[in-house]
Computed example of a mutant assay.
Amino acid sequence: MRQLKSLAKKIISPLVDSLGLYERRLRAAARVPDRWTIVMYHRVVTSTAADPFRLGMCVERSHFESQVRFMRECFNVIALTEGVRRLHAGEPLPPGALSITFDDGYLDNLTQAAPILDSLGLPWTLFAVSGGLDTGEMLWWDRTIAAFACTDRTSLDSRSLEMPGPARMPLDAMRAGDTVEAVLAHLWTLPHEQRMSVVHRIESQLQARVRPELRADRLSSAQIVELHRRGVEIGAHSIHHPNLGLCDDATAIGEMVSSRNRLQELLQAPVKGFAYPGGRLGAVTPTLARQSGFDYALATTVGVNDSRTDPFCLMRIGMPDAPLADFRRAFSGAIRRGAPQTALTF
């Protein structure tokens, strides 16, 4: 099914895009007043080998460059803090307002994305996980993905991972991607300590030696400071990247405040924004973010913001790893489905 979808995108999207339909839709959306689109990236890579199961967190460098060039031509790219300031002040948003964000804090944000964004003069914001910045340890989902991608095993015993469903999960080439998605979805349902215990069990069971191209290296403390000095806004993204919807109030506030404090110590500057890890949050989480002293917080709910949007429930659109024609199809579709839409206020 994934291969069929990929083939359809390669054939159909360029044909429709050649007629200018998607671009006209996007340019029309950029002319609508009081709309603010926030786009979300995670990684910018030089090889698709970095995303072995095509889970969507990686965008190939040439695709990224063509996408942000188009954004600069079609939209009014503004700093995230400028949009937030206008929301708080009750000021209208500029026509075609769009802001660029990155989550997690990967090394390639500095080595691959930053040079392109700098050359185009585009502002952007990075939300960094503050735990383990200088340990060299990959984030928990990257460890899981690498273990599956590098193993020689043909199946996984799900019982040792406390997962429901069949005892044996296949790892052959045709089905491994589905298994990985199921395991990652299960890990999101676990509290942090339990999740890390399961990740250790996965690595032990699969006995994989991680290949260099599967190492999802993170930014160091010094590199985050370097980006800040170059004008990049740095926001908080928790300590451990937990599912905040599973946390009690004290734990959730601790993740938010400790993450912010760690980054503020590094930067010697205020950290005003927070991005909910994986977009997972409970009904009171936005209230907790407000109580924690942030100016705003971002979710992963797909939509376009306006002057009525709660600054602690800002919506974003995730960017696909796609050439320009299919990017315009996906982006225009997301904007049409998500606008206008008002986030709930908690």
Results as ranks from 00 to 15, higher is better:
residue 157 D to H: 13
residue 157 D to Y: 06
residue 157 D to T: 06
residue 157 D to C: 04
residue 160 S to E: 15
residue 160 S to Y: 14
residue 161 L to P: 00
residue 163 M to Y: 08
residue 165 G to N: 06
residue 166 P to D: 04
residue 167 A to T: 14
residue 168 R to F: 02
residue 168 R to C: 06
residue 168 R to A: 14
residue 169 M to R: 14
residue 170 P to V: 05
residue 173 A to L: 13
residue 173 A to C: 04
residue 175 R to Y: 08
residue 175 R to M: 03
residue 176 A to M: 14
residue 177 G to P: 10
residue 177 G to V: 12
residue 177 G to W: 11
residue 178 D to T: 13
residue 178 D to I: 10
residue 179 T to G: 05
residue 179 T to D: 11
residue 180 V to T: 09
residue 181 E to P: 05
residue 181 E to C: 04
residue 182 A to R: 13
residue 183 V to Y: 03
residue 183 V to H: 02
residue 184 L to P: 11
residue 184 L to N: 02
residue 185 A to I: 07
residue 185 A to Q: 09
residue 185 A to P: 05
residue 186 H to T: 13
residue 186 H to K: 01
residue 186 H to W: 15
residue 187 L to Q: 02
residue 187 L to V: 11
residue 187 L to F: 11
residue 187 L to K: 03
residue 188 W to L: 09
residue 188 W to M: 03
residue 189 T to R: 07
residue 189 T to I: 07
residue 189 T to N: 04
residue 191 P to Q: 03
residue 192 H to A: 10
residue 192 H to L: 12
residue 192 H to N: 03
residue 192 H to R: 02
residue 192 H to W: 13
residue 193 E to L: 10
residue 193 E to H: 13
residue 195 R to D: 03
residue 196 M to S: 04
residue 197 S to F: 09
residue 197 S to P: 00
residue 198 V to L: 14
residue 198 V to R: 06
residue 199 V to Q: 00
residue 199 V to F: 01
residue 200 H to D: 15
residue 200 H to L: 14
residue 200 H to F: 11
residue 201 R to G: 06
residue 201 R to V: 14
residue 202 I to Q: 00
residue 202 I to V: 14
residue 203 E to A: 08
residue 204 S to T: 15
residue 204 S to F: 04
residue 205 Q to D: 15
residue 205 Q to E: 15
residue 206 L to H: 02
residue 206 L to M: 04
residue 206 L to W: 03
residue 208 A to T: 12
residue 208 A to E: 14
residue 209 R to E: 15
residue 210 V to H: 02
residue 210 V to F: 03
residue 210 V to K: 00
residue 211 R to E: 12
residue 212 P to Y: 06
residue 212 P to C: 05
residue 213 E to K: 01
residue 213 E to Q: 11
residue 214 L to I: 07
residue 214 L to C: 02
residue 214 L to A: 01
residue 214 L to R: 03
residue 216 A to K: 08
residue 216 A to N: 10
residue 217 D to K: 07
residue 218 R to A: 11
residue 219 L to E: 05
residue 220 S to F: 12
residue 220 S to W: 11
residue 220 S to D: 06
residue 220 S to R: 13
residue 221 S to I: 07
residue 221 S to F: 10
residue 222 A to F: 09
residue 222 A to E: 07
residue 223 Q to Y: 10
residue 223 Q to T: 07
residue 224 I to N: 00
residue 224 I to G: 01
residue 224 I to L: 15
residue 225 V to Y: 06
residue 225 V to T: 08
residue 225 V to W: 03
residue 227 L to F: 04
residue 228 H to A: 10
residue 229 R to Q: 12
residue 231 G to M: 08
residue 231 G to I: 11
residue 233 E to Y: 03
residue 233 E to V: 11
residue 233 E to N: 02
residue 233 E to D: 09
residue 233 E to C: 04
residue 236 A to S: 12
residue 236 A to K: 01
residue 237 H to N: 00
residue 238 S to A: 15
residue 238 S to N: 08
residue 238 S to H: 05
residue 240 H to I: 08
residue 240 H to E: 12
residue 241 H to T: 12
residue 241 H to C: 04
residue 241 H to D: 01
residue 242 P to D: 06
residue 243 N to V: 12
residue 243 N to D: 15
residue 244 L to V: 11
residue 245 G to N: 07
residue 245 G to R: 02
residue 245 G to D: 08
residue 246 L to V: 02
residue 246 L to G: 00
residue 247 C to E: 05
residue 247 C to T: 03
residue 248 D to V: 08
residue 248 D to L: 09
residue 248 D to N: 13
residue 248 D to F: 07
residue 249 D to G: 05
residue 251 T to Y: 12
residue 252 A to I: 12
residue 252 A to Y: 04
residue 253 I to P: 02
residue 253 I to S: 00
